[in-house]
Amino acid sequence: MRHTPNISRTTRLARVAGIATLVLAAGLAGTGTALAHGSAAPAADQKVDGVMVVAGNSCSWTNASTSAAAPNALTVDRATVNAPGGNLACGGGIAATLNNNPAFTFDDAAGTARTDLIDITGRQSFISCRYKATNIAWDRDGTTRKYVNRAFTATKTSGSFLCPGSVTTPAGDASMLFR
């Protein structure tokens, strides 16, 4: 039998709350750079990668499909983020599920993007928490298609009484790389 160290309830709750911020940043994101694609980009290039540290644990996915290439308005297909169609995975015994297809709009002149709604469920052990955040703002990293989040707060919509009523994601804790 494998021995795992005891983790305090406070630490578990912090991780669950943290996971809620995970995809709330929606995409999570890439660490590389990419050049802007025009509207004629092939479907194979209409992807988004992500990575984020949540409560000391890394969560990531690769190759999620988007409905268009940035900077065109687009949606991220949750079926290509969540397993089994996608490969969203987190360390530390945390599981996450993106519950919607987030829509993104871009303002290239200002170097910003905006997400209409992120709806995510985070789970650890027997605790499940669902959070929603609206109107999330992102800042472009130079001339790449990598966008880094501005601070935002997500509100609990369902889940255990142990889940915080809201969680705040600091600026820079999530990013998305459109390619």
Rank of each mutant, 00 (worst) to 15 (best):
A20E: 05
F104T: 11
T153R: 00
N101F: 00
G122S: 07
F178H: 07
Q46D: 06
A151F: 12
I7E: 06
L117C: 03
N63S: 13
R123A: 07
A70R: 06
D141L: 08
A137H: 04
Y147F: 09
S166Y: 02
D77F: 05
G142P: 03
V16I: 15
T62L: 14
S65D: 05
R9P: 01
P102C: 09
N135C: 05
K132V: 13
A154G: 14
A36R: 05
A83I: 03
L162N: 06
T168V: 14
R150N: 13
A89Q: 06
D77C: 03
D107S: 04
T10V: 01
P5N: 10
N101H: 02
N87T: 13
P5A: 13
D77R: 02
K156E: 13
L22Q: 08
A25T: 08
G85R: 01
M1L: 07
I7P: 15
N100K: 01
V148I: 13
T62G: 13
T115F: 12
A70S: 14
I7H: 14
G32N: 11
S60I: 01
N149F: 08
N135F: 02
S160Q: 10
G159R: 02
F178Y: 11
A14D: 04
L22M: 09
N149V: 04
T134H: 03
D77G: 09
R114M: 08
K47W: 00
T66P: 05
R12T: 11
C90S: 07
L177D: 08
A151D: 14
D141M: 01
R2L: 11
T143E: 08
S125H: 08
T121Q: 05
T112D: 00
D139M: 07
N63W: 00
A34R: 03
L162A: 11
T155I: 09
A36Q: 10
P42Y: 09
Y147K: 08
G91I: 08
A29M: 12
R145P: 06
L162D: 07
A64S: 12
G111T: 01
G18F: 00
D141A: 12
K146S: 13
S60F: 02
K156L: 14
R2D: 15
T33E: 02
S158N: 10
S166I: 00
N87I: 15
V81L: 04
S175N: 14
L13N: 11
T134D: 04
S60M: 06
L13W: 00
A55K: 10
N6M: 04
N100P: 01
L177S: 10
H3M: 12
T11A: 12
G159H: 04
N135S: 12
R145M: 11
I94N: 15
T153Q: 04
A83V: 06
